[in-house]
């Protein structure tokens, strides 16, 4: 029957450190640069990174307060370990939870939502509409949402004003970067 990946499956995967080899691959540095370059230049109070993994992207994000959320407890463990060594560790808050449970976490409104590498069928199945509704409600008026995904595997788009669609090569694929504003 398949179904979307469970916490247990993701935890299994996250036993290893840096399972996708982000640290070593030059394209992963580039994707962080692309994302930061695409962010509208303005102060961000609260930033939320959904499906943040070990924080590879999260730690580069602006925001007085940055919340990282991932379903995998193991991934959140790595992120917390990395946060502990940082001088700006006070900025970061990590939580193991599903993106589908985000509306129930009582987070303050987000000025910036980042979601990268998460909106693929194996993670979200046919439930993107719930994410679209939940994240639109989380975003503060005027807030920014950035989505970055491998274009061949990504079939979604948000019910927000889309301001940017930008493509660049990523490993043997192509990344599609979108910027939305509420």
């Amino acid at each position: 029957m398949g179904g979307v990946q469970s916490r247990a499956e993701l935890d299994q995967f996250w036993q290893r450190e840096d399972p996708w080899g982000y640290q070593a691959h030059p394209h992963d540095r580039i994707r962080v640069g692309e994302l930061l370059a695409a962010l509208p230049r303005r102060p961000y109070g609260h930033t939320v990174d959904l499906g943040c993994g070990d924080g590879f992207v999260t730690f580069e994000l602006p925001g007085e307060r940055v919340t990282g959320i991932d379903l995998s407890k193991e991934a959140i463990g790595w992120a917390e370990k990395r946060a502990a060594t940082r001088v700006d560790r006070e900025r970061f808050h990590f939580k193991a939870a599903s993106i589908f449970d985000v509306p129930q976490l009582g987070l303050p409104p987000a000025d910036l939502i980042v979601i990268t590498g998460v909106l693929y069928p194996q993670y979200i199945g046919g439930a993107f509409a719930a994410i679209d509704a939940g994240l639109s409600a989380l975003l503060a008026p005027g807030g920014i949402l950035v989505s970055v995904h491998i274009s061949d595997w990504y079939r979604s788009s948000f019910s927000l004003s889309r301001l940017v669609m930008h493509r660049y090569p990523y490993r043997e694929y192509e990344h599609l970067l979108e910027v939305y504003q509420r």
Binding site: G125, G126, F128, D132
Partner: peptide, 18 residues
């Protein structure tokens, strides 16, 4: 309502929205 249809008693969130 869920991300996938385990049986015919399930409706996906995307269809539910529509």
């Amino acid at each position: 309502v869920g991300p996938d249809r385990k049986t015919h008693w399930y409706v996906t969130a995307d269809r539910f929205h529509a």
